[in-house]
Amino acid sequence: MATIRVQAAAFDVGAEISALTAGRADVGGIGCFVGTVRNTAGGRTITAMTLEHYPGMTERAMAEIAAQAEQRFALLGCTLIHRVGRLEPGENIVLVLATSAHRAAALEATAFLIDWLKTGAPFWKKETFADGAAAWVAAREEDDAAAARWGGA
C-alpha cells in the first residue's frame, strides 16, 4: 500500500525515506524526486505559488496511479506527498519515492509517477509575481507528452 498525502505542511525527505524502508531488507534501490518552487517564470520573478486541489478526487486519483506503478514496476513501496496552499520559492511542493529490488524499476517508476502527477491529478498552481500580479499557470503540452510516453495510465 502506497503512502498518499495531500498537506499544507512541508515534508522531510529523509524521514519519509526512513519510514518507507523501515524494517525492509529486500529493498535494493530507492527512487526519489522532489519538486520545488522556482523563483522565476517566463523571465518574471515569483514571490509565491499557491496550490489548489480537488479534495477527495485528488487522493483517489493519486492512490490509483500509485497502485498502477506498484504493479507495473514491481515496486516494494511508494510514497506520494503533494503540498497545497501558499508556498514560497525554495520550498518543496511534491515528493515521489519508489522502492524496488533493483535501481531501474525504482528510477522508472519515479519518472512515471511525477509525469503522471503533472497531468492526471487535480491540482492547480497560481503564481504571484514581484509586482503583486497573480496568474494561474497554464498547462504545458510538454507535460502531456511526457505522461503520454508511458502509455494509457
Binding site: 496550490l51 486541489h53 503533494h82 503533472k118 491529478a121 492547480w124 494561474w136 504545458r140
Partner: peptide
C-alpha cells in the same frame, strides 16, 4: 460534477 482548467500540479 466538477469543472476546472487543465491540471498543473507536480
Amino acid at each position: 460534477v466538477a469543472f476546472f482548467p487543465p491540471v498543473t500540479g507536480g
